[in-house]
Amino acid sequence: MAKKNKIGEYLYCITTKKDAPKEFNIKGMEDSDIRVMFYRDLAAIVSKAPLKEYEPTEENVEKHKTVALHILKDHTVLPVALGMVFKKMGILTSTMGRVYFVLKKSLNLIDNKIELGVKVILPKNFEESNNGKSIEELREECKTEFAKKLDGIAVESKEGKLFSDRLALNMSFLVDRNNIDKFSDILGKLDDKYNDLKVQYTGPWPPYNFVDVRIMSRGK
């Protein structure tokens, strides 16, 4: 007989009590119902899920992300790493108590801000640009140009890994919600300038690259 995993509390993200949705019309991991657990003025978004290791598969990432995005539409979200599942609600509550001030500080830092992703991608079989620049020269130019123009609008930026040979740039920006349009305008102009490259603009995302919450508990 197959071994059945015990059920725990899977944590998706954290927000403030006032921003927590009253109800969710989406499902969580393994089709579970999403609930809100309050701790002082914070709210942990959780659902019942098996106590097991959650691999970063397409399906798991999608479920985890969807819940955070649901709240991000209108409110600030403190993202949490994929796969944090607590044995009991009591363990999650006491853990939140221990890291309460860190969570509050992180929420203040990202208040009213979202993450936007920008990738500059070379066409397939690219050897050199229209104006004869090599891949390395283009990478250097993009890094300077995009960072210089977008850093002025963003609160913070981070360079991501160039996981493909086709990537000339991979950056994440922490942007105030009020500046999203300005950011998009500048990016549009950069897209026009580098019209032989593909500029991919994604988001808004919870600021995964700017706060890294991994709550560990002894009871886990």
């Binding site: 990738k119 991608i121 996981f163 493909s164 086709r166 593909k198 991919q200 994604t202």
Partner: peptide, 13 residues
């Protein structure tokens, strides 16, 4: 892991 991301990128493009 890089190829997984590249595959996703090609789909998104």
């Amino acid at each position: 892991q890089n190829v997984i991301k590249e595959n996703r990128m090609e789909y998104e493009l």
